[in-house]
Amino acid sequence: MIAQMLMDGLIAGSMIGLGAIGITLTYSILRFANFAHGELVSWAAYFALSVSTALGTALPGLSASLGPFSFGWSLPLGLIAAMALTGLLALFADTLLFARLRARGASTIILVMAGFGAALTLRSLLEFIFTSKPMYFTSALQIARPLFAGARATPDQLLGLGLAVALVAAVHLILTRTAAGRAMRAVSENQALAGLAGIDVAKTIRLVWLFGASLAAVAGVMAGLLVQIRPYMGHDLLLPLFAAAILGGIGSVPGAMIAGLIVGLAEAACVNFIGAEWRAAVSFFILVAILLLRPQGLFGKAGA
């Protein structure tokens, strides 16, 4: 039972970690807690669903199952489209709302509030377009296979776990080894100084939105594949995402992933030992503990 609990926790945690990386990047570089990030996750799932359904209808061959997985080529293609579309959505929201507020020199908290208004709009629009009925990428049933010590997981779940680990490594390398990554880190340290050093701050900010939105898209498609697609899926993920981003230390990519796994494991432990009905409270108590004991997070810099 314990092995199964660990497995479930790791799978849920890798999903949370992916979303939290997006939050931690936008948080450290754009300098505000974006409440609309959860909605990027939901929109991405619906984007991928629409594209993969359309592809599957146009070319039925694409929806034939790939090897052991429950989906065909239409889903990975849908994911790529969703990353692009979610990126555009984020840029659209930035141009329409956040960029104008930034240009006016609005305080952090006004940006937080704008994100809150945007989240409300985006989420309810989804509910209007797709109704609140849960949807699924495939109707195929997957049998969980035994792995070790009695733990079971479906091939889809293992793929998600692997994808999350690979993406963390990729994002970490991009941030530390490429010029664009260096520019992002410079803007996060000091926007004005980065501008003086010849970094195009506006371009870097656009890049951060695209980056955060693509990661949100992966998290959304994964959550949609492993759980279900609902207009509220991103909203319900938001608290675990914030808890993981703060626990990992704002701005730390590996921190966000490790903290995401911790949050996922804690939720699984709660379901196992206390009861599934209290699962949503776990993130809050992790958040409270972190704010009391180590507000800068596990891997964050003090005073941040």
């Binding site: 505000f32 807690a33 908290i109 914030f242 993130s283």
Partner: peptide
């Protein structure tokens, strides 16, 4: 903005 996140939770 930590207050915002904490009150949300």
């Amino acid at each position: 903005d930590y207050l915002a996140i904490a009150t949300f939770g």
